[in-house]
């Protein structure tokens, strides 16, 4: 069922990629340079990036040679294999066996952090877990109000300070409240920031350190929220957030559009940061665990 929903969410992406690939691969074409060039272009259009697409196609070329594949129709399963291999590195579930599990949500402006926090809270609440939302975004106008609305709708508690107050202090209080109230999860909604702003990145590092002081071992998850429409800059985002917060995973949002999110293939492959969840719609249930096989299956059909 999960699979069906994912497929539905990704249908547009899927049919698009599949159509393109089918056009490329159809009709018993010869497996030659021209074919590989076209496969590479298809991958580039999925935002996999020039370098990654090139490397993947080289690998594909090698395998076709080794397995003496001469019919273009037989190339498809190999494409799936090659991409899935890259995505599999380190894919894992959310670490939620701690009590409370402290989950810190980070990302650039407009990637969908607050909405993702709400969906995560909803997931925990559906399992009858106790959730605390920490309104750590004290910068953006009305961000706290937005999270407050979500707290009410999902039945989570919210810890908030004034707009403009110290984000690290909110994080500390949220975790302290999580411990006191025996919550299962504390979700910290941090302010969006450009990864190029060294001052704001330092601030984020501080939030992370202070979380560790409130509860040794916290945060247990630091998740980068990545907009699937983002192109090659996503790699830079991942690198920079990684260096200040030690990311434990990625949440890929807005996959319900026609965006393909292929850049995560490069990120998983080159930085070893697993994709943990994907957002495939505006509904509260539309945040799903990531599964490499499903993802590739959904994209390539």
């Amino acid at each position: 069922m999960v699979f069906e929903r994912l497929r539905a969410g990704l249908e547009r992406t899927r049919s698009h990629m599949r159509d393109m690939l089918n056009t490329v691969l159809s009709g018993g074409r010869r497996v030659d340079d021209e074919l590989f060039d076209e496969i590479e272009e298809t991958m580039i259009q999925a935002d996999m990036g020039f370098a990654t697409a090139h490397a993947l196609v080289e690998e594909l070329r090698q395998r076709c040679r080794n397995e003496r594949i001469t019919d273009s129709e037989a190339v498809m399963p190999l494409i799936r294999d090659v991409v899935e291999d890259r995505l599999r590195q380190g894919t894992s579930d959310l670490l939620t066996d701690q009590t409370p599990a402290v989950i810190m949500i980070v990302g650039v402006n407009g990637s969908g952090k607050t909405t993702t926090c709400a969906k995560l809270a909803h997931r925990f609440r559906t399992d009858k877990k106790r959730v605390i939302l920490g309104a750590v975004d004290t910068f953006r106008a009305a961000a706290i109000d937005q999270l407050e609305v979500w707290a009410q709708r999902t039945g989570a508690d919210i810890i908030r300070h004034q707009e403009g107050s110290d984000p690290a202090a909110v994080a500390f209080d949220a975790i302290a409240a999580g411990i006191a109230r025996r919550a299962d999860a504390v979700i910290l909604d941090t302010a969006g920031r450009m990864h190029t702003r060294s001052d704001l990145m330092k601030e984020l590092g501080k939030v992370r350190r202070v979380a560790g002081k409130a509860l040794p071992g916290a945060p247990h998850e630091v998740l980068l929220v990545l907009d699937a429409t983002t192109g090659q800059n996503a790699m830079r985002q991942a690198e920079e957030f990684q260096s200040v917060t030690e990311l434990t995973g990625i949440i890929l949002t807005k996959l319900d559009g026609s965006a393909r999110g292929g850049v995560v293939v490069s990120i998983v492959d080159q930085l070893g940061i697993p994709v943990k969840m994907i957002g495939i719609g505006e509904g509260m249930d539309d945040l799903r665990p990531f599964d490499a096989a499903e993802f590739v299956e959904a994209i390539f059909g």
């Binding site: 935002d47 907009d227 429409t229 983002t230 192109g231 090659q232 800059n233």
Partner: peptide, 12 residues
């Protein structure tokens, strides 16, 4: 339009 948008920009 977000300057960080990828290949999808043309369709959007």
């Amino acid at each position: 339009a977000d300057a960080m948008t990828g290949q999808e920009a043309v369709n959007i």
